[in-house]
Design a binder for these strands. Sequence first.
DNA 1: CTGCTCGGTATAATTACGTCA
DNA 2: CGTGACGTAATTATACCGAGC
Length: 246
Amino acid sequence: MMEGDGHIQESREENVESTTSSQPPQNPRKKKNKIEKKRRFSDEQIRSLECIFESESKLEPRKKLQLARDLGLQPRQVAIWFQNKRARWKSKRTEQEYRKLKDEYDNLASRFENLKKEKESLQIELQKLSDRMKKSVDGRRESTTWVAKDNNKEDGGSGSGHSNWRGDEAKPSYSNEGLEDREAMHSHDENEKSYEDREHQIQKMEKHGNEHVEVPLASVEKWYSVDPSSLLDQSCSSSQWLDFWT
DNA sequence: CTGCTCGGTATAATTACGTCA
DNA sequence: CGTGACGTAATTATACCGAGC
């Protein structure tokens, strides 16, 4: 808040002569002699010190003596000024680095949130497809039972509408709805390509019989080989979710 | 407007401790 | 190994400013 460089100009001007206050501390710790009151350096002194600090943050002893002579300061004062300047410069740099890192972190966090949302919607989609597949498999199992029963009958089984379609060729009526769903999804899904791949898998799975279901499903689940619970867990280690990005 | 106090900030200086020739 | 010079980090003491009354 208070830089105050401009405001203290006058009081500094008169300090140029009186800056030789820094005798070795006779009374270390507290209770300074009133005579050796702290004086701020003049603007001119500060300018010179800053100028030299820019080119070299540490002073050679000879340069220190020379500078002290030039500015009318004690060499000790020059050394202390450089020490304090280095400390201020370091904390300033630390603050800048902190801000930079924080920005990077915020960016990553927001990307992470977006991906998390996307992952959740994909999980929902996967669940839907799994349910649909399960229905399909169950439907086929039922139909084959019906067919078997019909074959055992002498009459040829005209009483049941279920015998109109067989597991190999007939599709359950919800497949059309599914198509509509899929089209709707296509319209706003950014990962259309991978979605199509998955659809292809599902269709393949639907075509095959009961015994083939397990294997493709397992491969589908490989898409989610990263443990979702660990990803969603806020307390997970950074390396864990950094691995996820790569 | 002037003067005073108060709280916050900047900075000169001190202290403690580590490193190295 | 002891020593002195010099470094950093933490802290203290003082100067200075703006706000509020």
